[in-house]
Nucleic acid binder design. Structure first.
Lengths: 252, 252
DNA sequence: GATCATAGTCGTCTGCCTGACGATAAGCAC
DNA sequence: GTGCTTATCGTCAGGCAGACGACTATGATC
């Protein structure tokens, strides 16, 4: 049976990225300013077309590198530094989600340690880390005093789904370490949980939990005082990826 | 800026379905026989092209209805009978996954109660429920004595991902009730867990757990002896969708 | 109709984990 | 040193899960 192009409607396929990090005790996402219609001047998630010979994960990794310079953490190299976690999130294909044409977007979720500064094709004014709370807010004014405009397209929904995925996934996996630098303290890891969940956790119980879970953390031997106070032991993420029993998210 | 079709490569977009049910104490998936190349004569997951004016979820629901006659359970109508659960699973877009052209497939996961018989365009010999273990098996012979051939395309991977999603999701949600008819007993629900996880559960502890979780089960007042033995209370799925604390899957 | 097999339901006990919280340790700023 | 900060160890009570005993109510079989 020959290939019949009339048998199916053509789609454009893109990848959109929810890139999350923790800055100043807040969960932040990478946003880029749109330079062209539709939604010109509005903030959006980074993303772009999937190329003809490219896998979806490749396209997402390429976009991530283009926007942030981050390489993707290869699970086969556990000790790799500064690698970001990247996973597929969900696919959005409402016929009206892009007014120009039929676009199906495969959204990906990336988790990264706090980065120096975003870059978007070298133009820093067109990319920023913004607290997800602010990006998802409806109306009102941001902390910079500018009026808040909703994200372009259906990106608010995509961002909300990504945040929810991250929030639930750090419960039962060691994914929270993806927000930390290669060596980190128990307190730093706890502040990641607190920022992502937006709650306060008991330092003593948290310490007991993470140090008591085999394979979660491995001590490097060093200590640091970069958080002030008594010197804290430094750890690296252990090989365990699943937390059993899970970290319990407090009721809100 | 005008719409420029040359700016992106065209893709075909399909939905593929992992339809799971529990039959005779085994987790089974719906498979259809391919009538045309590539992989002619091989078993595959049901699916088809997304139409030009159709949302992804609509396309998946349409395919599900075409293959099984099942309607999708609407969460707004909790008491609806025989509705299947349908959710997006993941998207597969390797450039070589279909030798004919560039196809991106948005896989969906459907959970259904045991059904009378599959239908595939009215031709029953081209559709069947098969134990997932058999569909995922590499080589050897099936229980009908025929040699086992792998599923077409990357459908073995898609099926494995769907099964894994179902296995993990019944831990912390009330999704296992989607495998049951509208009224069911605690024992029937337990056999669902046992079939999906492939383990044996203690009937007494299971009973305590599910009846003690508020909102999970609501008694209908009736009883049944359809499983033999002492009459069992009939229940309907309650409004709760999340199980907290979750059902614990025994170590293997 | 007695006996048996089958499934359902209620309890008990023990160990583990969590949440609450006291106490101590070890840095820095003054 | 005093005070402040963060880290770390310990204790205790309550809740939940696994193991398992006991009892109940059907249908099947003799």
């Amino acid at each position: 049976m020959p290939y019949d192009p009339s048998a199916f409607p053509p789609f454009a396929v893109t990848v959109d990225l929810v890139v999350l990090t923790v800055r100043r005790h807040a969960l932040c996402a990478l946003a880029v300013r749109r330079g062209e219609p539709p939604f010109q001047g509005r903030w959006a998630l980074p993303g772009g077309f999937v190329r003809a010979d490219e896998d979806l994960a490749q396209a997402a990794a390429r976009e991530l590198a283009e926007e942030t310079g981050l390489r993707v953490h290869d699970p086969a190299v556990p000790a790799q530094d500064n690698g970001a976690h990247l996973e597929q999130l969900a696919t959005y294909g409402d016929p009206k989600r892009d007014p120009r044409m039929r676009v199906v977007s495969v959204a990906h979720l990336a988790l990264a340690p706090d980065l120096p500064a975003p870059r978007a094709g070298g133009d820093a004014s067109n990319a920023r880390w913004a607290p997800v709370e602010e990006l998802l807010q409806q109306g009102g004014y941001g902390r910079d005093g500018e009026p808040v405009t909703p994200l372009a397209f259906d990106h608010a929904q995509i961002l909300a789904d990504g945040v929810e995925r991250a929030r639930s996934k750090i419960e039962y996996s060691s994914l929270a370490t993806a927000f930390c630098t290669s060596e980190f303290t128990v307190g730093e890891l706890r502040r990641v949980y607190e920022a992502v969940w937006g709650v306060a956790l008991d330092p003593r119980n948290f310490h007991r939990k993470v140090t008591g879970t085999p394979g979660f953390l491995v001590p490097t031997g060093g200590t640091t005082t970069r958080q002030g106070g008594r010197p804290a032991q430094l750890f690296r993420a252990g090989g365990a990826t699943l937390l059993n029993p899970p970290m319990l998210r407090p009721e809100v």
